[in-house]
């Protein structure tokens, strides 16, 4: 009673692609907001802001993404939330992205030359104006390439959400494989879809990197 892999099966996986993209988009958007907060806290002069940011980054860097996913998934249940793969995956990946983008952007903020900070202090610019008008625009230029690089990691990482029952393309591939028993075909298709998304992003990141090093050389 096995089916053969045909258009219908392909279509089933392709439809699941939107959930891969949606989960990535939510996590990335949330991670941009969270990451900015983490990066600013991490570079703050105040220890009470800096230390929690350091702790958060260390925890997320030092544990596997899958464990983070499990802990949020089961942890939410513990606190009385209904087990919902969508919500758990979105929350876990957002936290994960916040910590990693926070650390990436910390590096970018610290890469802005010291003289830029000193010039803004000397002009009497306050915290907000200094960051909005001087430091962050310069850090953002440095940040584009590594940020897109992280987006690629994040997109591939969403495949782990299949383990908690979130139906994205990896999970869809498993479902199709259970019906067809053609793992090489099925998972090649799934891998090709990841590749089709990630490769252009990687190219974009490479191009931004080259542009940035050119701008520096000027």
């Amino acid at each position: 009673m096995f089916r053969t892999f045909g258009f219908e099966e392909f279509w089933f996986i392709l439809l699941a692609l939107r959930w891969t993209i949606a989960l990535t988009a939510i996590a990335f958007a949330g991670g941009m907001v969270g990451g900015l907060v983490v990066a600013l806290a991490r570079t703050s002069a105040l220890p009470m802001l800096r230390y929690p940011a350091v702790a958060l980054i260390r925890v997320f860097q030092g544990t596997p993404l899958l464990m983070q996913l499990f802990l949020v998934f089961f942890g939410l249940n513990l606190f009385g939330f209904k087990i919902d793969p969508w919500f758990a995956a979105a929350a876990a990946f957002t936290l994960h992205a916040s910590a990693f983008l926070g650390e990436i952007w910390r590096g970018c903020i610290e890469a802005v030359p010291r003289g830029q900070f000193e010039a803004s202090w000397a002009l009497g610019l306050g915290y907000k104006d200094r960051n909005v008008s001087v430091i962050l625009p310069q850090a953002a230029r440095i940040a584009v390439a590594p940020t897109v690089g992280f987006l690629v990691q994040l997109l591939k990482g969403t495949s782990l959400a299949s383990i908690i029952g979130f139906i994205e393309i990896t999970r869809a591939g498993q479902v199709v494989n259970n019906m067809t028993f053609q793992p090489m075909v099925v998972f090649s298709v799934v891998a090709a879809m990841y590749f089709a998304l990630c490769w252009p992003l990687s190219l974009f990141a490479k191009r931004m990197e080259r542009q940035f090093s050119k701008a520096l050389a000027r």
Partner: peptide, 18 residues
């Protein structure tokens, strides 16, 4: 407040490049 009243010129100019 003091920094607003004190102008400073640096060895490396430190203009905002963007």
């Amino acid at each position: 407040t003091i920094r607003q009243e004190v102008g400073m010129v640096f060895q490396q100019f430190n203009l905002f490049p963007h």
